[in-house]
Write a protein that binds this DNA or RNA. Structure first.
Lengths: 214, 214
DNA sequence: CTTCGCCGGTGATCTGGTCACAGACCGACT
DNA sequence: AGTCGGTCTGTGACCAGATCACCGGCGAAG
C-alpha cells in the first residue's frame, strides 16, 4: 500500500494510485523548505522525517510555530495555493525528509471531486489554527519557566534532551541567557541536570506540573 | 442584488439565491457569538456590524485575535465544521451585527460543487492564518509601545479614540497599568493627549513610525 | 447630594530581555 | 602537545513589562 491510501482514508483507489505515482523529493537535514515571502507551487505532504516552521524577529530572536510530521501536509503550501498570500515563516528540515508534492492542478481537481481529500485538508488547517492559537496563548500569558518545561518534555519525555540553551530559547521564543538562568534555577530544585549541549530530566512529573501551571 | 452574489463573486445564480434566502440573525452589541469549547453548527457570514474574537488567559488578561467584518466569515465556524476541534477563543459583537448562517449540509454541498465558494473559504482561512502569524510575531517580538501605537491608529486613525486604558490593554494583550504609563510617556512627548475614556492622537505620523519600529 | 462603580495614577517588587563580557570546552590543525 | 577559532555557558548591570496593593477622582443612579 502506498502512502496516499494510508494518509487519506476514503480516497478513491485511482486517485490514491495517482498520488502514489508522484515523484518523492528527498530533502537533507537542515534544508530550507521555504523562506519568508515565497509562494509555493504545490501541496506538500511529508512522508518521513520532520519539518519545523519558525518565525524570526528583527532582533534575531526566533520561535517555533509548529512541526510537520509524516502524514501531515505543510499547511503553508495549502494556503499559498488558494489564498495566494505569501508567508512570513521559515521551514527547515530537522531530519532527512521525504516529501511528495501534489502539483496545483491535481490539488484543485482533488478538492473538487473528493470529499475525503477536502476533509483531510480542512482537518489539517483546523488543527494548525488550533496549534497557533494555543501557542499565542502560551506566549502571551504564561511564564518562560512553564514554556521551557513543556519544551523539555516535548523534546525528550524520557531521560535527556540534546539541545543547547540557544536552541531551547529559539523554540520557546525567549533569550539564551534567560534559558540559562531558568535551567540553573530548575537544576537547583533538582528538576534537571545540565551539561554542555544536554539537559537531563530528573523529575519529569514535577516538570509536567510546571509546564501546566498557569 | 443579495449579499451572496456580492460577497462570493463567481457563485452560480441559483446557489446565490439559495444563500440569500437564508434567515438572517440579528445579534445585539455585546452578544457572545461563541465561547471557549463550543462547536458551531453552521458557517457564519457577517453581513453588517463587527465581531471581535479574543483570547483570555487564566489571569484574566485578554488579547484581541482578530475582527470579523462584513463580507467575511467567522472562521472558527468553518474550522468547527470540518475539523471538529473545539475552539478556545471568545467572540463578541462590538456593534449590532447581522449574520447569515449556512447550515452544515448546504455548506458541504457548496464546497463540493462550487469552485468559487471553495476559493472564498480558502482565502478567508489563509488570511486569518496570516493575521494570527502576524499577531504572534508582534506579541513575541515587539514592545508594548509599538503595539499600543498600532492599536490607537487602528481604532481611530483620525483625531481621537474612545477607549479606556483597560480596553486598550485587552486589545494588545498587556496590563492596564502598563498602558497608563506608556500613554503618559507618549503624552509627554506630544504624541497623544489623554482624557477620561478618550485618547486624542496629536501626531499620527509619529505614532505610525512608532508602530512600525522593531 | 451622597454613594457606588468605573477609571486612572502610583510605588514596590518580580520576571524577562538586552548588552557586554569572560571563561570553558571542543575539534582541528600543526 | 600546543594553540587556535568557534561554540556553549555563566554573570552582572540595566531596562521593559507584569503584578500587587492602594488611592483619589469622576459620574451616573438613586
Amino acid at each position: 500500500m502506498g502512502w496516499a491510501a494510508a494518509s487519506l482514508p476514503g480516497l478513491g483507489p485511482e486517485d490514491a494510485a495517482r498520488l502514489d505515482a508522484l515523484p518523492v523529493h528527498i530533502l537533507p537535514r537542515g534544508a530550507r523548505v521555504f523562506g519568508p515571502g515565497e509562494t509555493p507551487q504545490g501541496f506538500a505532504m511529508v512522508l518521513s522525517g520532520r519539518i519545523e516552521v519558525s518565525l524570526t524577529g528583527p532582533s534575531g530572536r526566533e520561535i517555533l510555530l509548529y512541526a510537520v510530521e509524516p502524514g501531515q501536509s505543510c499547511i503553508q503550501t495549502t494556503l499559498g495555493l488558494l489564498g495566494d498570500e505569501p508567508y512570513s515563516g521559515e521551514a527547515l528540515c530537522v531530519t532527512d525528509t521525504r516529501v511528495a508534492v501534489i502539483p496545483a492542478p491535481l490539488f484543485h481537481a482533488l478538492m473538487a471531486r473528493s470529499e475525503a481529500f477536502r476533509g483531510f485538508v480542512f482537518r489539517a488547517l483546523a488543527s494548525r489554527m488550533n496549534d497557533m492559537t494555543a501557542l499565542l496563548e502560551r506566549v502571551a500569558f504564561t511564564r518562560v519557566e512553564a514554556r521551557l518545561a513543556a519544551a523539555l518534555l516535548d523534546l525528550g519525555g524520557t531521560g535527556a534532551v540534546a539541545a543547547t540553551h540557544a536552541e531551547l530559547a529559539a523554540r520557546i521564543g525567549s533569550a539564551r541567557e534567560v534559558v540559562s538562568r531558568r535551567l540553573e534555577a530548575m537544576a537547583k530544585r533538582g528538576l534537571v541536570a545540565t551539561d554542555r549541549g544536554r539537559v537531563e530530566l530528573r523529575d519529569p512529573a514535577a516538570l509536567k506540573r510546571l509546564a501546566e501551571a498557569q
